[in-house]
């Protein structure tokens, strides 16, 4: 009885639509006429004859592979700095955490669009530092994705908070013992800190990766919904949105959604499969 709302939700707006989406992916459906069964035609078109799909896949992979490790590296680095028992920890932690709460908003995406525009803040600062002939970062195909990667790295606060909680669980005797044995700062970091918090690294990796694959708002706002310039910020989800709600090619979009699900599942599986090599669970 307590479970009723959840059960309705699970069946009605999660499981049901999931199955519907799988079925739709084998049909041609434009929202006006009834869906028409076309077998694997959508999937065939996606892989054989849609360069934009491959572009969107490339953009998204680049984004995930570059921004997630960078974001986690920042998060861990700052967390280690903060974890030395500095005064004002709570204050610093809050300041670093704030961007995570704001980062997915339209307002911040608008701000980013200005910062990296031709006469935006970034170029103003570079100009003050003496640089000349600065590009319009947002409008340059080779650079536009970089601005979005910066935005994702900027929100490193939430994995950082999780790292901090993990670092606190590492017993300080380990460090003292290692120091007695003559281990330097880096050795202690590489041999004690990293293995001891590897489950936390793993958790953050999965969480941020799944999130990064689904980036939508930032890409939409910064490119005005187009994924431009020249499709250089055509994120997977943005392309899926265009297919479903601009071209009304619902079957095609459903097929894309299922491919995304499989990709995320594959990456998650890969992370789990390799985890026994690098994730160390203590005997708690």
């Amino acid at each position: 009885m307590f479970l009723l709302p959840w059960l309705i939700g699970m069946i009605g707006i999660t499981l049901g639509p999931m199955i519907a989406s799988l079925l739709l992916s084998f049909t041609d459906y434009n929202f006006l006429r009834a869906p028409e069964w076309v077998g694997i035609d959508n999937y065939a078109r996606i892989f054989a004859d849609d360069p934009r799909f491959l572009t969107s896949l490339g953009v998204t992979f680049t984004y995930v592979v570059v921004s997630v490790p960078l974001q986690l590296a920042f998060a861990l680095g700052i967390a280690v700095l903060l974890n030395q028992g500095l005064r004002g920890l709570a204050f610093y932690r809050s300041v670093y955490y704030l961007p995570s709460l704001l980062g997915t908003s339209v307002a911040i995406a608008i701000l980013w669009r200005q910062i990296f525009g031709a006469d935006g803040l970034f170029n103003q600062l570079l100009g003050l530092a003496g640089f000349e002939d600065l590009p319009n970062w947002i409008a340059t195909p080779e650079l536009a994705l970089g601005t979005l990667i910066t935005l994702n790295v900027w929100t490193f606060g939430s994995p950082m908070v999780i790292f901090l909680a993990g670092l606190r669980q590492v017993p300080s005797e380990l460090y003292e013992a290692a120091a007695v044995d003559g281990a330097g700062r880096w050795t202690r970091f590489a041999r004690i800190t990293i293995p001891m918090i590897s489950p936390v690294i793993f958790f953050n990796l999965i969480l941020q990766m799944i999130g990064a694959f689904q980036t939508f708002t930032q890409a939409y706002i910064v490119s005005g919904g187009s994924g431009g310039p020249v499709d250089s910020t055509l994120f997977y989800t943005l392309y899926l949105y265009q297919k479903a709600f601009r071209d009304f090619d619902m079957g095609y979009a459903s097929a894309m959604a299922w491919i995304l699900l499989l990709i995320i599942a594959l990456f998650t599986w890969l992370a789990f499969a390799t985890s026994n090599r690098w994730v160390h669970y203590g005997e708690d």
């Binding site: 999660t14 799944i210 709600f245 459903s254 959604a257 995304l260």
Partner: peptide, 24 residues
């Protein structure tokens, strides 16, 4: 089984249910 199903939806990309939910 139900608990496992719930955990699985933690990883479910929203896009998978987007189109049918809209149709619904």
């Amino acid at each position: 089984l139900l608990f496992a199903a719930m955990l699985a939806t933690l990883m479910l990309p929203f896009q998978v249910i987007l189109v049918p939910q809209y149709i619904l």
